[in-house]
Every structure is written in C-alpha cells, then in structure tokens.
Amino acid sequence: MPVHLYWGEDAYRRGQAVEQLRAAVVDPAWEAFNFGRYAGDALIDALNQAASAPFGSGGRLVWVEEARIFSHCPEGELAELARTLPHLHPNGHLLFTLQSKPDGRLKSTKLVAKVGEVREFSLIPPWQEAKLKAQVQQMAQERKVTLSAPALQLLTEAVGNDTRRLDNELEKLALFAQGRSVDAEAVGALVATTAHTSFQLAAALLAGEAATALRVLDELLRRNEPALRIQAVLVNQFRTWLWVRVLIEAGERDTQAIAAAAEIANPGRVYYLQKEVERTSALRLGRVLPILLGLEVALKSGRPERAALESAVLHIVNALR
C-alpha cells in the first residue's frame, strides 16, 4: 500500500527523500492536479484527496507535514484514517513527515507502520565519529567521489553531522577531482574547516585546554551561534558527565542503569562517557554547573555575550583543575 512515514531531525535528507518520492510518483505536467501539501491539522482533507483518482498520467502524492495524529490522535481522525487507508487509489501515495519520533504507543502510529513504509532520518550524534565517517563515505560514493583515508577524516571533522553542507562540499570536490581520488590537501584547500560545535567546546573544557576552548568559542561566535544555545549544550553535557561520574564513584557498572539515571537515550553512549570522565572527579564536575547557571543569568541580564562566555570558559577550566 502506498503509505509513507518519514521522520527525523535531519531535515535535509528527509527533504531529499520527499523530492525523490515526488519525482517517482507525480508527472510534472499534471503536478498542479496531483500533488497536495497539507498542514498536520488538515488530515481529513488530505485523506479525501488521497482517496481520489489522479488526473491525467502519473500518480497522486498527498503530503501531510507534522501530522498531529502521531503525538495525539483524536478518535474521529483515527476512525477516518482506518477507514480510508484500505481504500486509497492504487496510484495515490499518502506521505507523512515528522521531525520528532512518532509515538509508537498510539493506534495511528501502529496502523501506518503496519500498512506502510517507515523511514528514519535522524542526525548522527557528534560524538559518534565512526558513524559520521561512514555517512561521509556513503554519500561520497553516491557522488562518485573517492576519498583517501586522511581526506575522509578531515572532511568528517569539517562538516560533522550537517548533511546539507556535506552534500554541497562533495559536489564541489567532485567537480575538482574529475574522477581522480581526493586527498587531504585538496579537502583542506576547498573545504572550510569551521565545523566547531558546542560539544567540541565542552570537550576542550573537560580536558582543561583553555586556549583550545577559547579558539572554538571564537569560531562559534563568528558563525553567529546563539550564546544561550552554547550555554544550554554545555549544561546538558556537564550534567551528563557529572551523573556518569557520580554513578561510577558509587560503584555502578551496569550501563543500562547508568543510562536510565543520567537520562541517556542510547546506552551504547555510556561507554564513551565513562572514558571521557575517567580522569576527573564528581567533585570537580560539580563545580561547573553553578558557573554555567551564572552564565545563563549574565546572558539573560544583557551582559555582552563574548565577555560572559570567555569569563565562564576560564572559570570552568580553573574549577576542573
């Protein structure tokens, strides 16, 4: 049955998948009649159109964005969904897209998953370097770009989990290479290595590398990263590190228990977090959160962002010594 559910925070890859489906289903000459795009609260209208036959050649695609039925499904909409899905036109496709994960407990989610195609487009977390490298390698192969091992490493560090930028950089490298292998020198010359993140800032702070932390902070500010967003990432990261370290010092070794206590969605991440905090203590990590709370107050009180952030960076490095 032609029902599709695409979800995940990677809006670029999700959007590409939507366009691929649209190109495969809808005849451009009849697009005005056979392509419909609806907001999430217009489900009934979308279902009515999806059940009707397409005009002319090609098929019909009805796209519902951020459909509320996957987070809260009123009985009336659920009944209409259950009634309509078995009677969709053979050449009609019904597409749902969501940024967040659909609630798997809802009958609407179970119904769509049972009869349709569900695809996930989640961003790879910045700390999962192996998966990021695999993603770069896969997208490079799709672009027919051959990367040397150093070039792959450098490109991964440069773009992180930004798939839109990765695709643009690979297009640039493909034009440059003209079928030849791309080395690290070419990546360094053509790709701006400015993918510093707040996670890298947190890692530099944890390592006590004040100069590196200030350099990463400068790059983030030059890229207009919101100061409160930087502060929020630091709070979340240091809070997680503190929980993990407290549990380690308490003798806890069960990664599932640590993940549950620290509110870590992926228990597989616990191993890496344990390695990251093995050279510090809960006492030192506990000194950081009050500094970050003071930073939030300073930013919301109108203190100049750069001065407030730089001051916090230096205080955190000192607190972790």
Score class of each variant (00 low, 15 high):
33 F>K: 09
55 F>C: 06
152 L>Q: 08
81 L>I: 05
292 L>V: 04
41 D>M: 08
218 D>H: 15
246 V>A: 02
97 T>R: 04
254 D>H: 10
31 E>N: 09
230 I>Y: 07
288 V>N: 10
64 V>N: 13
116 G>A: 13
86 P>I: 05
150 P>T: 06
11 A>H: 14
125 P>M: 05
127 W>M: 03
307 A>F: 02
8 G>K: 11
202 A>K: 01
213 A>C: 02
47 L>I: 09
11 A>R: 15
189 A>F: 00
50 A>Y: 11
33 F>V: 01
221 L>N: 09
86 P>D: 11
89 H>M: 04
301 S>V: 00
261 A>Q: 13
252 E>Y: 02
55 F>K: 07
198 S>P: 05
23 A>Q: 15
301 S>P: 00
150 P>C: 06
292 L>G: 08
277 V>D: 00
142 E>N: 10
63 W>P: 02
300 K>L: 04
16 Q>M: 05
205 L>I: 06
269 R>I: 00
132 L>H: 07
193 T>F: 00
2 P>Q: 13
219 E>Q: 15
300 K>F: 03
88 L>S: 04
312 A>N: 03
64 V>I: 07
17 A>S: 14
321 R>K: 12
40 G>Y: 04
143 R>F: 04
233 V>Q: 14
292 L>M: 07
309 L>E: 05
55 F>S: 09
22 R>S: 13
92 G>Y: 14
293 L>D: 13
20 Q>P: 04
18 V>H: 14
47 L>A: 08
276 E>R: 07
135 Q>P: 00
222 R>D: 09
183 D>R: 06
66 E>R: 12
12 Y>V: 03
7 W>I: 01
211 A>M: 04
290 P>Q: 14
167 D>S: 15
297 V>Q: 14
181 S>F: 01
247 L>Y: 05
196 H>R: 06
10 D>W: 08
204 A>P: 02
44 I>N: 13
61 L>D: 06
12 Y>C: 08
62 V>K: 13
313 V>Y: 08
297 V>K: 12
149 A>S: 05
212 T>E: 13
200 Q>P: 03
157 E>C: 00
88 L>D: 10
303 R>E: 10
177 A>W: 03
206 L>F: 01
290 P>K: 14
113 A>S: 15
15 G>A: 06
152 L>G: 12
70 F>V: 05
39 A>I: 00
158 A>T: 01
151 A>P: 02
233 V>L: 06
23 A>F: 09
65 E>M: 03
57 S>L: 06
121 F>G: 11
80 E>Q: 12
89 H>K: 11
40 G>W: 02
259 A>G: 11
236 N>S: 14
11 A>I: 01
213 A>G: 07
252 E>N: 07
35 F>A: 11
94 L>N: 10
111 L>H: 04
211 A>T: 15
14 R>L: 07
7 W>K: 11
188 G>Q: 14
76 G>H: 13
234 L>M: 04
72 H>R: 15
44 I>Y: 08
50 A>E: 10
128 Q>N: 13
43 L>S: 08
80 E>T: 06
217 L>S: 05
188 G>D: 14
314 L>Q: 07
297 V>P: 01
307 A>K: 03
134 A>K: 12
299 L>K: 12
213 A>L: 01
111 L>N: 07
2 P>I: 06
30 W>T: 02
9 E>K: 12
